[in-house]
Amino acid sequence: MLLIVFFIALLAAAGLVIDGGAKLRAARQASAVAEEAARAGAGEIDRSRAYAHGGQFVIDRQAATNAARSYLAHSGNAGTVSVIGTQTIRVTVTISQPTMLLPAIGIDQIHVTKTATADLIQGVTAPGR
Rank of each mutant, 00 (worst) to 15 (best):
P98M: 11
S75W: 12
P103W: 07
P98S: 13
A78C: 08
R90Q: 12
V93T: 00
A118G: 10
T94R: 03
M100T: 13
V83G: 15
T86K: 12
Q87A: 11
G76W: 05
Q87G: 05
A73N: 04
A78R: 09
T113K: 04
S82C: 15
L120P: 06
S75E: 14
V91G: 09
P103A: 09
V93E: 03
V81N: 11
R90T: 10
I89D: 10
M100H: 15
L102Y: 05
T113A: 00
I107N: 05
P103N: 08
H74S: 13
A78Q: 07
L72N: 14
G76D: 04
V91T: 12
V93R: 01
I105Q: 13
G79I: 02
G85N: 11
L101D: 00
P98A: 14
H74K: 12
I95N: 02
L102E: 01
M100Q: 14
T113W: 00
A104F: 13
V83F: 15
T94N: 02
T86W: 10
V81A: 09
T86I: 09
I89V: 14
Q109N: 10
I121R: 12
I84M: 06
A118T: 08
V91F: 10
V93S: 00
I89C: 11
N77S: 10
Q87E: 07
G85L: 09
L120A: 01
I121N: 10
I89S: 08
R90I: 11
N77P: 06
G106K: 02
T80W: 04
H74M: 12
L102D: 07
G106N: 01
V81C: 09
L72Q: 15
I110F: 05
M100K: 13
I110W: 00
P98R: 14
L72W: 13
Q109G: 00
Q109L: 06
T88L: 00
V83N: 15
H111K: 09
L120E: 04
L72Y: 15
I107A: 08
I84N: 07
T99S: 09
S82L: 15
T94E: 03
T113D: 00
T117K: 11
G123N: 10
V93G: 01
T113G: 03
H111E: 10
V112P: 05
T113R: 02
K114D: 05
M100L: 15
I107T: 11
T94P: 03
G106T: 00
Q109K: 00
L120T: 03
H111M: 07
I110C: 07
V91W: 06
L102A: 00
V91K: 06
V91D: 10
D108S: 14
L101M: 02
A73S: 01
S75C: 14
T80D: 12
H74Y: 13
Q97K: 01
G123D: 08
